[in-house]
Design a protein around this nucleic acid. Structure first.
Length: 472
RNA sequence: GGCGCCUUGGCGGAGUGGCUACGCAGCGGCCUGCAAAGCCGUUUACACCGGUUCGAUUCCGGUAGGCGCCUCCA
């Protein structure tokens, strides 16, 4: 178990995770009013892989990614779609789960929903009112920002400089402009509503996360994550709500940078989005994951055709490496003779160590990947015992374990029978080509190569003889 | 206007007070029947101006440009 350090937004310093306690991670998930885009996928991938890394180091990690399924925009989008908002939110939640499932990096340990947390939300709001931190006004409830002295610490702002904006219908109801809603009374056209001590209504934004985090991880947990655009007001408000109620909140705040398109942040409201499902269709899951870990999580990441093609090319280089250096696989992992290291200072052990150390150092995935490619290069030059096993272990850690496997020729790889039929046909052609080459009939051999290409195969004549490889 | 971040070779993207990041692309070469894969090589890379230092891309100050948040947003 190595020391894992994370840059903390709140203190600005690098914080070391406590190895003696469970590392609870709460990462803000999507508000389900539309399909998620590549940018939304970044925190999902980053925090999933971070939790995976912690477990591999022997930490007890628990990852919670919520789904916010009560929101003004959901009402609006449902109305546009001509659907009830509850049904609409359910459909979008299912789409979100399906889209992120396709990333192939597993699910979070818990995925609480706002709609299933309303009781706890009402309880917290009541407690805040009792403590003088919140007040009811016209059926709404607002948080009294002036009552919380620590307000502004996370985003490093003074309350005077801030503005929560005028939420719809809140005109004249707030004591101060920077107060924010905890509970909103049911408005015209809203088709979901919950009973509360303040009348029928529904939770406002922010409060659900305070409650879900505590319900899943306890009153004090290790890491709170999310996109950097949530620092203010969302996370600032979460802190205010929880801590005002005497409930200690997160120790470390970990924020990922934005994915930008054409130099601008990718955002649903900007309309410059590229859906995750579309990216997966077009480039494949491995390229999408490889792309998302290609930059440090805190930095902005440029999205576009070129970065995605480069990610594809990196994956292909790795796949070629495994074509020449098969990993002996046994159930559940890498076979013993392929185990890296063991005897200390071997190149694979050193690279694997550097790879993990990079991840332990503020989850520096690009530095880690550089170590991986160093090892790949070394092993491509000369035989390096254990290299394939070490690279396989690295890939597994970043959710790219499948790169060690040959890919399917058939589109989508969802059809194993079609795939094997195709392979059988290709093998016949390959044998014909071998004969032609033996007879020095290169014209015929090249002709067959074209036929194989049409089937989706590339022929590579190596020292070990010709070999069929699915075209990239 | 306030707060914060960024500016690295053709592109993406790490990092460091003095040592090749890495990947992609192009070009040249090796290998190959031809290819592919792989390997080798590839012309002052660190926005600009000062300062600190034996030495700065790397620390400090300033200039220019870009981005994010300050309203919903991963």
């Amino acid at each position: 178990m190595r020391e894992v350090r994370i840059r903390d937004t709140l203190s600005g310093a690098v914080q070391t995770l406590d190895p003696d306690h469970e590392v609870g991670i709460y990462a803000c998930g999507p508000t389900v009013y539309s399909r998620i885009h590549i940018g939304n996928a970044r925190p999902f991938v980053v925090f999933s892989l971070f939790a995976r890394f912690l477990r591999s180091e022997g930490y007890k990690a628990r990852l919670v990614v919520n789904v916010t399924d009560i929101n003004d925009k959901i009402y609006a989008a449902a109305a546009r779609a001509g659907e009830g908002s509850a049904k609409f939110a359910e459909e979008m939640t299912a789409a979100y789960v399906a889209d992120t499932d396709r990333l192939g990096i597993g699910r979070p340990d818990a995925e609480p929903k706002a709609t299933e947390t309303v009781d706890g939300i009402i309880e917290l709001i009541a407690q805040l009112i009792d403590g003088g931190h919140a007040y009811e006004s016209g059926g709404d409830v607002y948080f009294r920002v002036r009552s919380f002295p620590g307000y502004g610490r996370l985003s490093n702002r003074r309350p005077e400089d801030m503005d929560q904006g005028e939420e719809a219908g809140s005109a004249g109801l707030k004591e101060e402009r920077l107060d924010f809603a905890l509970w909103k009374s049911t408005k015209e056209g809203e088709d979901t509503s919950w009973e509360s001590p303040w009348g029928p209504g529904r939770p406002a934004w922010h409060i659900e996360c305070s409650v879900m985090a505590e319900q899943e991880l306890g009153a004090s947990f290790a890491v709170h994550g999310g996109g950097s655009d949530l620092v203010f007001p969302h996370h600032e408000n979460e802190i205010a709500q929880s801590e005002s109620a005497g409930r200690p909140f997160a120790h470390v705040w970990m924020h990922n940078g934005m994915v930008d398109a054409g130099g601008e942040k990718m955002s649903k409201s900007e309309g410059n989005i590229f859906q995750l499902s579309e990216a997966l269709d077009r480039y494949g899951r491995e390229a999408v994951v490889a792309y998302l870990i290609s930059g440090h999580y805190r930095q902005p990441l440029a999205f576009g055709e070129l970065p995605m093609e480069e990610a594809e090319a990196r994956v292909e280089r790795l796949r070629n490496f495994f074509r020449g250096h098969p990993v002996g696989r046994v159930a559940g992992g890498v076979s013993p003779e392929q185990q890296p290291g063991g005897s200390g200072e071997t190149p694979p052990a050193t690279r694997l160590e550097a790879f993990k150390e990079a991840l332990a150092d503020d989850f520096n995935t690009p530095r880690a990947m550089a170590e991986m490619f160093e090892l790949v290069g070394e092993a491509n030059r000369d035989e390096v015992p254990g290299a394939a096993g070490a690279v396989a272990e690295m890939l597994e850690l970043v959710g790219l374990g499948t790169v060690t496997e040959e890919k399917s020729v058939v589109e989508g790889s969802a059809s194993p029978p079609a795939n094997s039929t195709l392979i059988a046909r290709a093998e016949v052609l390959k044998a014909e080509r071998d004969d032609a080459r033996a007879a020095k009939d290169f014209a015929r051999a090249d002709e067959i190569r074209d036929e194989l290409a049409a089937l989706g195969f590339e022929v590579r004549d190596s020292a070990d003889g010709p070999r069929l490889v699915p075209k990239s």
